[in-house]
Design a protein around this nucleic acid. Structure first.
Length: 495
RNA sequence: UCCUCCUUAGCUCAGUUGGUUAGAGCAUCUGACUGUUAAUCAGAGGGUCCUAGGUUCAAGUCCUAGAGGGGGAGCCA
């Protein structure tokens, strides 16, 4: 039977069980934990007359003396199911506690709805109250809450329509990211959260220590002696997995990281978090053009995935928050990203006739106003800018032959600004070392990074995608604090 | 961190050149209603006007400081 590919159920000889299991895993496996039906399933069911048990949280209850209508939601979909309860069938005390926010279990039969708001509904035969929610103090109502107010009750906001949609989309994008890379031969590399080097140069870092803050050990010069600390050296939370990502790419060819990233910058904007998630693919044998191709393909894939699989949630956000969301998503997948060099961008800005607050001479970094002009006014679509002056970019970027620019790339999106930053990396040992010396970076902390150029160096490239920036684009939300369940910003780590 | 705006009922907000007892919608509670769709109708309760000073006969309203929040900028993803 071996090698036939058929399930060996009646083999005379010995067939290892795990082999059978492995062969048929994907089709044979069915989750066995199923105590109730998800509302998402029931809403598309046509098994009228069948009994279902549903569990969820009450959105609204309305009705008259004889009949009660309960809108129930379990988070499996943006849509509620309507529960119809004949009041005479249930104790008065029970129904009185079925209020907005309460958690209940309902058993009943599926029937076509007599009302006009939905196709199906559940005629309840049994209602069990899991957790009441006192109407006088439960902060969520069925009407109008501002996003600012919901941020103050971040522990309850997942129960709102808006955050249900956002959190489902956040899951969808996470899954699509893994799927895209997996399907294209990339390996998921876990780079460290705690890092001993601050050579990334990406801003202020959060210190990680077990030293007694009231009485830290001191060295001869009166400085804190980190040799006594847990790791025997200064350690911080990572600001990027890129350098370690390169180590993986120079062995596995194509890798990506997807994990939390920490920046201790005092940034108070709708686009910054102190703790955010970042995706960093790193590819051996990619040059800057391959890198751009991948970034564009990847971003379009994510948008397509959301549209194909979570359209109802997108539609809700489109209707409630951002009337242009769906058309903007469609325009991104149906047009090529514009690709220009930094020098061309400067020319466009200088001949635009627009008065900018910040200078647009060659060598200055592009400011928000410049990026917004290029994306929203001049091209009116996503733009990738390459060939930045080397003095405004980090040490690891590959230097061009002109001696002035590096093979950096920034992907700029409408409304969001920079959504991706990346580059081809400098694989030449001497050039890399000379940049480290020029910038006065701690060479001794980078010995392992330099070893990759010493032994079997290869051309390679990669980029970083801010996950929450992508979520802003996908959801149409305006504030990054509303696309992560529990935002971490200066002066805010409540939940 | 800088600039700017905001803070009035549980929520969203109105409140006139400073002037009697601070209002509305929704929510909550009570009642009405045979199928509602953010149900509807009637009634009721609900306020440290962000905090602390100050100006004034009189401050929700003007001034100063502080706290919290929004938007813009910088830093960046």
């Amino acid at each position: 039977m071996r090698g036939t590919g058929k399930l060996a159920t009646s083999v005379q000889g010995y067939e290892p069980k795990n082999r059978i299991f492995a062969q048929n895993f994907s089709t044979a496996y069915k989750m066995s934990i199923k105590k109730r039906t998800k509302i998402r399933e029931v809403l598309i069911s046509s098994k009228f007359g069948s009994e279902f048990t549903l569990k969820g949280w009450v959105k609204t209850r309305r009705g008259s003396k004889k009949i009660a209508f309960i809108a129930l939601n379990d988070g499996s979909t943006i849509n509620n199911i309507q529960i119809v309860a004949d009041i005479t069938d249930f104790p008065e005390d029970l129904l009185r506690q079925v209020t907005t926010g309460a958690c209940i279990s309902v058993t009943g039969t599926l029937t076509p709805s007599m009302g006009s708001g939905q196709d199906v509904e559940i005629k309840a035969t049994k209602i069990e109250l899991y957790g009441p929610a006192d109407p006088g103090s439960y902060p969520l109502q069925k009407k109008g809450h501002s996003l600012e107010f919901l941020r103050e009750i971040a522990h309850l906001r997942p129960r709102t329509n808006t955050f249900g949609a956002i959190l489902r989309l956040r899951h969808a994008m996470s899954y699509a990211i893994h799927k895209y890379f997996n399907d294209n031969g990339f390996y998921y590399l876990h780079t460290p959260i705690i890092t001993g080097s601050d050579a990334e140069g990406a801003g202020e870092m959060f210190r990680v220590t077990t030293l007694d803050m009231m009485n830290p050990p001191k060295n001869g010069e009166g400085q804190i002696d980190y040799r006594e600390d847990f790791f025997g050296r200064e350690t911080n939370l990572t600001v990027s997995g890129q350098l370690e990502g390169e180590l993986g790419a120079l062995a596995l060819s194509d890798i990506y990281t997807f994990g939390p990233t920490f920046r201790a910058e005092n940034s108070n904007t709708p686009r910054h978090l102190a703790e955010f998630w970042m995706i960093e693919p790193e590819m051996a044998f990619y040059d800057i053009n391959d890198n751009m191709d991948l970034a564009e393909d990847f971003l379009k894939y994510l948008v397509v995935y959301a549209l194909e699989n979570y359209f109802e949630d997108l539609q809700f956000l489109n209707n409630m928050y951002d009337k242009d969301l769906l058309s903007r998503l469609n325009s991104v997948i149906n047009s090529d990203f514009v690709r220009i060099t930094y020098t061309e961008a400067i020319d466009i800005l200088n001949t635009s006739g627009v008065k900018f607050e910040f200078p647009t001479n060659w060598g200055s970094d592009l400011q928000s106003e410049h990026e917004r002009y290029l994306v929203e006014k001049h091209f009116k679509k996503a733009v990738i800018i390459t060939g930045y002056p080397k003095k405004i970019k980090p040490f690891y970027m590959k230097q061009n032959e002109d001696g002035k620019t590096v093979r950096a790339m920034d992907v700029l999106f409408p409304r969001i600004g920079e959504i991706v930053g990346g580059s081809q990396r400098e694989e030449n040992m001497q050039k890399l070392e000379s940049r480290i010396t020029e910038l006065n970076l701690p060479r001794k902390d980078l010995w392992w990074y330099l070893d990759t150029r010493r032994f079997g160096s290869a051309p390679h490239a990669g980029f970083g995608l801010g996950f929450e920036r992508m979520m802003l684009f996908i959801t149409g939300m305006g504030n990054i604090r509303d696309v992560i369940p529990f935002p971490r910003t200066p002066n805010n780590a409540e939940f």
